[in-house]
Structures are given as structure tokens and as C-alpha cells.
Amino acid sequence: MTPVRHFLVVALLLWLAAVGQGRLAQAMSIGIAQPDLPLVVLSCGAVLVGWIGGTWLGFWAGLLTAISFPSAYGSLFFSRIAAGTFAGVIGRSLTRNNLLVPLLVTLISTLIAEFLTALTAPSYAVHHLRHWGLQLGGKLIYNSLLALPVSLLLRVLRVGVVEEDTFGNRL
């Protein structure tokens, strides 16, 4: 697969995750812990497609998330671009075959996205700090655990698998 195809596969999965978020997230919630499916797919996918791909996947994930929640449109949009870029950048420095990598990247990406959202749209976090903290904790654990099946799915779809690049032209 070419890098563009890798990108398109993850973008399609992001769209499915956004659809699933509306239908399944409430049903999947355990207590106050609710997963953020697009963010999980974004983190796992961006690790595999690199910096530029991660940025644009973040843009796509941000747009899909923001249109579902108009009150914090810009905050969600921006935070997902940042999370996607982070995951894309960090992916280059890590051994992608290790199963712990998607788990850790998702954990940190979620933390970055949620903190940036809270920073740019602080009304909820400030007024319900304890509840926001509990929700964040639950989401961090839930997203990290979901990163394992999502990264396995991406592996099955051969996302991030590239031909050997002898001359180091790969981005």
C-alpha cells in the first residue's frame, strides 16, 4: 500500500469511529468512563502514518468530532490536530511493532487532547473539576485499553507496512 492509501484507510476508520461514537459510546460507558473512539483510532493510526499524515488525520478527526458537538467546535478541532500531530511525530521515534506503543501513545494523546480542550473551553472543567477529573481518568484507561484491538485491526489492514526503502527517501 502507498502512504496515501494508508492515510485513506485510517480516515475511513475514523469516520466509522465517529459514527460509532454517537451510537455506541453511551452504551459502552462503564460508570462515568466513556471511550472516545475517534481519538483512539486517530492515535493508533497517526503513529503508523507519520507526522504529515498524523496532522491531517487529526484535522479530519477534529472536524468529525467538532460537528457532533458545536459548543466546543474550535477547541475539539484544535485539540485533535495537536493529538494527531503528536502521535505522528512520536511514532517515528518508537518501535511500532511493540504492543505497548499504541497503548502509551493513545494514553498521552488523550491526555493532550483533553487538556487542550479543557484549556480552550474551560467552562465545564472549571465548574465540575472533580467530575471532569474522574471522567478524564476513566477515558484515559478506556482509550488505552481500546488501543490494543484498534492497533491490531490496523495491522491486519496492513496500515503502516511499507516496502523496504534502501535509499531512505521515506518521509
Partner: peptide, 14 residues
Amino acid sequence: VIALKPSTLSDTLT
């Protein structure tokens, strides 16, 4: 209702 509480940030539905 095609989407229920998609975000923990706020209680909304679509």
C-alpha cells in the same frame, strides 16, 4: 435519535 451523548463534555443528542 441517531446519536446520544457522543461527548462526555456535554449532554447532547443528534
